[in-house]
Amino acid sequence: MNYKLLGKSDLQVSEISFGCMSLGDDDKAGKALLHKALDQGINFFDTADLYQNGQNEALVGNAFKGMRDKVVLATKVGNQMRLDGNGWDWNPTKAYILQAVEKSLKRLQTDYIDLYQLHGGTLEDPIDETIEAFEMLQQQGKIRYYGISSIRPNVIREYVQRSKLVSVMMQYSLLDRRPEEESLALLQENGVGVLARGSYAQGLLLGKSPKPYLGYSGGQVTAAAAAVAEVAGQERSEAEVAARFVLHHPAITSAVVGIRTQKQLQEAIQVAAADDLTEEQVQKLRSALQANTYEQHR
């Protein structure tokens, strides 16, 4: 397993990380999966207070009780569950963040969160207030670092200019190359680590039945999947190629992979052990279809 520093932090995170959102309701099976991932070298685990209304955090916290120094825990904030349990509302205010972090700390059974991320964001948010909350929690030692989870270039620019964030989590894959337009270069120039999610494009790059995706037609999706399969050949899996395409970009620190089963975990470990793609292979993939661009939030 390769490890990289996340942005300007001192967090050494595994190149393949565990997206905990995919974990099911079986706590025993989930705990075993998390332990096996750690044993295999994955040390970065990403959850959120929104997932399963906090139960996902509780599962992660229970799994790593007594092992806190061996894992890098990341969670997210900003989606406030309604009192009736019917959905949630966006709330990036300082007051809410300071309240929500206490509940996350309790569920995670820890005194501190390694990476606390805003779970979204818009230009209409009280951005300075949100940053102030993160800075306060950092000073109090309740979080070590903070970042945002956002695909919006205009929001990302604001946080790069106005805060000390160390990371941005964003969707990036062969079928979603929008971050290449400007965000990846901006983040790399400013020493902000990128956590890439969606490397497999909902399984469309792994042979799942094609469908229109982010402006691409079903035929274009098929062409991208065919290019992945061609590069994979007999020596690699499609998962290795899809994830290694993402990791090839120098701005990417880690690919966050959703893992729910032992098979998916093994697949992720194989990706971590796989060789890098060659420049020729990357160009073959890139030429399979024209890169898409952002239509909004530019």
Rank of each mutant, 00 (worst) to 15 (best):
D128L: 13
M1Y: 15
G66H: 08
L50V: 11
K106H: 14
Q117M: 15
L184Q: 07
K284Y: 10
Q161Y: 12
I156E: 05
A63I: 02
N2F: 14
K4P: 08
Q109E: 15
Q202W: 10
L50M: 10
S209Y: 10
E295A: 10
E235K: 10
E57H: 02
L115I: 10
G191M: 12
A232T: 01
I143F: 02
S173I: 03
Q140P: 07
R107W: 10
G258C: 00
L184N: 11
F44I: 05
D49G: 09
L175E: 05
G203P: 13
N2D: 15
G258F: 00
V192Q: 11
Y116H: 09
Q117N: 08
G207Y: 08
A243F: 01
M67P: 08
R162N: 10
Q262E: 11
V72M: 05
L105A: 05
K211F: 08
A227S: 07
I113V: 14
Q234T: 12
G147K: 03
V71D: 03
A133D: 02
Y213D: 07
H119V: 09
L6I: 11
L186E: 10
V282Y: 02
E280H: 07
N62D: 12
E235L: 05
Y145C: 06
M21F: 13
M169A: 13
L98S: 05
H249I: 00
L118T: 05
E129M: 03
Q281M: 01
T293A: 07
A224P: 04
A232D: 01
T122I: 12
L186W: 13
D49L: 02
N62A: 15
N43C: 14
M136R: 12
L175G: 04
L123Q: 09
Y112P: 08
Y3K: 12
L83A: 12
T130N: 03
A32S: 13
L214P: 05
Q138A: 09
S199N: 06
E240T: 01
V72L: 03
K4G: 07
S217L: 07
R197K: 11
H119L: 06
A133W: 02
V13W: 14
G233W: 07
A196Y: 06
Q40V: 07
L186C: 07
W90D: 04
V257G: 00
T75W: 03
V77F: 08
S167T: 12
V221L: 06
R107E: 09
Q109H: 14
A227V: 08
E181G: 10
Y116A: 05
L73T: 14
A63W: 00
L195Q: 15
S14Y: 13
E280W: 01
L11Q: 14
K106W: 11
